[in-house]
Design a protein around this nucleic acid. Structure first.
Lengths: 132, 132
DNA sequence: CAGCATCCCCGCAGATACTG
DNA sequence: CAGTATCTGCGGGGATGCTG
């Protein structure tokens, strides 16, 4: 598959690279972003309200959570349901598309969890070899 | 599954959060990192030499490629084979562990590619709704 | 060729204050 | 409660130069 970044003039700005890359890689980055991963996995269980999600994840600044949710909503992965009540109540859930993504992300997360012991052994071996 | 970030004192440093989170999330970030994804997918095809890999990916600074490869090697996902010749020749390939990870990453990438049209439709709808 | 060392910039993310 | 707006810092990452 094509993953390489298309040629072009030398990037002047920093993240020109991110814009210049194949468009689907941008979605991939949204999905695999630090908070994107956590949001998707949590929402796989059930819908969440904003602050509820914030608490569930543990340490996300409100700003980053908002930003992550907006990005995922724009990409059509998350559905935002704002009830017109006071005080405001907004529920977030996965779309069908989002569910597909979330499942794969969770599978990858589960894999890393399962293989953690192997990774740690590899690290010890690596560090040991370096020390010598 | 547990993805939340454990409580603790307020993070003083910026990425304390990354260290404080469940250890497997660190590995997940390595494999889903901007360059990690590309490296893993490329290596799924065949082994690559350093500069060959650099060219294949297109735009990676040498520094980031080095750093990415070292991280993946330390995690036991990539095998580094440095031949003692002049000029130096170093081949990189996937370990069995790395191949498992790479396959899942590639699947996710392929999914994003397949669903790109849906994502773009969602974006147009989102932007249209915002404009109003 | 395959890196390591150094410098430096600017964008991400956290903190804080305010609003509907 | 669920956000927006604004400020600031610090560290990721590119550029350059050097080495085995």
């Amino acid at each position: 598959m094509v993953v390489s970044i298309p040629e072009g003039g030398p990037g002047t700005g920093k993240y020109v690279v991110a814009e210049a890359m194949c468009p689907y890689r941008l979605v991939l980055e949204h999905v695999t972003s630090r908070w994107g991963v956590l949001v998707l996995i949590e929402l796989l269980d059930r819908p969440y309200r904003f602050s509820e999600l914030r608490r569930a994840i543990g340490r996300v600044s409100e700003k980053m959570l908002t930003q992550t949710l907006q990005t995922l909503e724009r990409d059509g992965l998350v559905h935002r349901d704002a009830k017109p009540v006071i005080p405001p109540r907004v529920d977030y859930s996965l779309t069908d598309l989002g569910r597909e993504a979330a499942q794969q992300v969770r599978d990858l997360a589960l894999w890393t969890e399962r293989r953690m012991a192997d990774v740690e052994r590899a690290r010890e071996a690596y560090d040991e070899a370096k020390k010598a």
